[in-house]
Amino acid sequence: MKINIILLLLLFFVNIQYLPAGEIRDKTEAVVNTFAGHEATLRFQKLLINPKQKKDIEIQVRQRFFKNFVYVWKINVGDSLKGYAVLDNVYGKSMPITFLVIFDTTGKIMTTEIIKYREAYGGQIANKNWLNQFSGMGEESAFKKGVDIDAISGATISVNAITKGIKKLVLLFSYIHESIKSS
C-alpha cells in the first residue's frame, strides 16, 4: 500500500515537472490556428536539418542552431498550401527562448511570436509591435539592429539572439519548403 502511494506521488510529480512540454505544443498550435484561421489544417513534423546546410547557415549568421532539428507545421487550407510555421529556440543570456515564425510559401515572414521566455530580464522582445518589424522580411533583408530592427533598452542580448535566430530560419526556408512541400 505504501509503495502504491509513493508510486502515485511520483507519477504526480513527474507529470507536474514536465507539464510545460504540452503547454508549448498547445500554445504553438493555438497561435498558428488563430493566425491561419480555424479552417486550416496543420500537419506537424520534426524536421532534421541537413548538416551541410546547418553549418553554412551557422557560419553566415554567427549563431549555432539549438538542435539538429526544428519543428515544422505545414499549414493547408483545403488542398492549397498556405505556408509553414517553424518552432525553434535560441539561447538568451542563459535560458532558451522558444519562438515561432510563420512563413508564406515564398519564404516571407508573415508573423513571429515568442512562445516561451524564461529569463527575468529582456522579456520585452515578446512585445507585438517589436515583433511586427519582422513581418514581410525575407532572405534579402538585413536583420540588422539599427537598420531594419530597433533596439530595446534592457534587452540587448535577447534582441541580438532572437534576430539571429529568426534570420537562421529565413535562410533555412528553402530547405524546409523543398523537404516537406510534397509530404
Binding site: I3, N4, L7, L10, L11, V14, N15, Q17, Y18, P20, A21, G22, I24, R25, F66, N89, M95, P96, T98, R118
Partner: peptide, 21 residues
C-alpha cells in the same frame, strides 16, 4: 503500477525533450 510508471516516465522523457530546457 511499475509498467504504468515506466510508460509515464518514458512518455514524460519525450515531452521533456520538447521542453528544450
Amino acid at each position: 503500477y511499475i509498467l504504468f510508471l515506466i510508460f509515464v516516465l518514458t512518455s514524460s522523457a519525450l515531452k521533456a525533450q520538447d521542453d528544450f530546457f
